[in-house]
Nucleic acid binder design. Structure first.
Lengths: 254, 254
DNA sequence: TCGTGTGAAAATGTTCACAGCT
DNA sequence: AGCTGTGAACATTTTCACACGA
């Protein structure tokens, strides 16, 4: 089984965003070439990426924007809603909580956590989840959420499970030196997905322990993705000094 | 000339961070295997990545932490300072401005810009650049910067060039629908590096124009890097639904 | 005729085995 | 003996050419 390139998944996210822009512009149909131009990849790449997941077009015609958008939304798992907690409500956590766009994709914040006493008890507006992914409806009014101490995370998670609102993901926006222990708290609370904003890698194990430390059971099926600004800044510095090493974007644009 | 994998550059950033952690822990020497374990890649990968840039180790011995750190710092262009402006001082821009870690790598904010009248004229603390990359000195006290209107960016850039403080990079933290025009403002001000936080791709051309639009001269040598949290959220959703498609991390850890 | 879908070719990136230095 | 550095084997990813359906 060959598997699907990781990069293809990221590109799919881009194609979906472009389809939404096309839909807002009332465009009904498109083609691999048109998508390629806007996504800064080749038309071959677009067709191959889509082919990993199915056949969504019509030969000779192209793609129907609404159909392809629906299919990619389904493929990416964005046609269901995801209950999210944020751990770390400093400036970055607050920016994430308010970031527009997350709620449109059914990422709904259900809990906010920190350890700093001056933050605990503070109320923060968070956007409500949309009912439909259509994108045409009005945004519902925001709700208020109280910042809780992280020691209460496990209880909260248990309670959410009780009312069929299990927490799906935790977004980690704590300083790097606390990222590992905060991640451990998420895992102990039974949360299986972590989006790590801290500039450090989370080790999928309970203890710093010896080198050959086994992955512990509770970490077994936990998925971690990293989003690190500092890497972006440093990559930019590198490529500004070494522009010849940057891969050019392809020619074909029709 | 074969070229260096883009992914290798990102991994180099990770190795450098690990070396800093080792230095803080008073570790004097390390090995490809030890770095590999912490970076979640194979030891082969570490050695190959380092080999793209030179020979930094001693056979039979390993690497001297301070030497490898110095060399990677140089390779990544982090031994010089970079003058940065931020465009878009909403919550995300503010979080970026205060993000600790940026100033340690000689990213120094010299200007802040927005278009919203209620933000213009506000003063924001930004960390001062460190003189040395050593990481052992005290952090200098923060400075205050006034948020300016983006229409004044070109003049400001000109003025900075006049005093040998040319702006090297612009960090773009505006809403996606304004990202292209804000990027255009950066380019018109002569800024050659853009770190785009908006969930949209910047097109390296002046006009939305026709499909085969040429890359205009002013965009010719502009480098753009993207940091998009929404992609991270959506990738996480995808891999939680399709865990079998996630590439495992390697065995070798010694 | 047009543009998708796809097997095959080419390019790229990763893993490996081992030579070579300490 | 131990660990780096590297050419060669291998695997993956991208590019391409073209068959096929509308």
């Amino acid at each position: 089984m060959p598997g699907i390139p990781t990069a293809a998944v990221s590109r799919l996210v881009t194609y979906l965003r472009i389809l939404e822009e096309l839909e807002r512009a009332q465009t009904l149909t498109t083609s691999s070439g048109a998508l390629a131009g806007r996504a800064q990849v080749s038309a071959f790449q677009v067709r191959k990426d889509l082919a990993y997941f199915g056949r969504f077009g019509t030969r000779g015609m192209g793609y129907t924007v609404s159909v392809l958008k629906r299919e990619l939304t389904r493929v990416l798992g964005l046609n269901r809603s995801w209950n999210v907690v944020i751990v770390g409500m400093g400036r970055l956590g607050q920016a994430v909580a308010h970031y527009p766009g997350a709620s449109e994709y059914q990422f709904g914040y259900v809990g906010l956590f920190d350890v700093k006493t001056e933050l605990i008890g503070k109320h923060v507006d968070v956007p409500a989840q949309r009912e439909q992914v259509s994108g045409l409806g009005q945004a519902p009014p925001p709700r208020q959420l109280r910042i809780e101490h992280i020691r209460d995370l496990a209880d909260f998670a248990q309670q959410q499970r009780g009312c069929q609102q299990a927490i799906d993901m935790g977004f980690l926006a704590v300083p790097p030196e606390h990222a590992q222990s905060a991640a451990q708290s998420l895992v102990e609370a039974g949360i299986k997905g972590i989006l790590n904003f801290a500039p450090t890698l989370i080790q999928p194990r309970s203890k710093e322990g010896g080198p050959l430390q086994e992955i512990s059971d509770e970490w077994r099926d936990v998925m971690v993705e990293n989003v690190d600004f500092l890497v972006g800044m440093k990559r930019l510095a590198f490529y500004m000094l070494n522009p010849q090493l940057k891969d050019q974007d392809p020619e074909e644009r029709t």
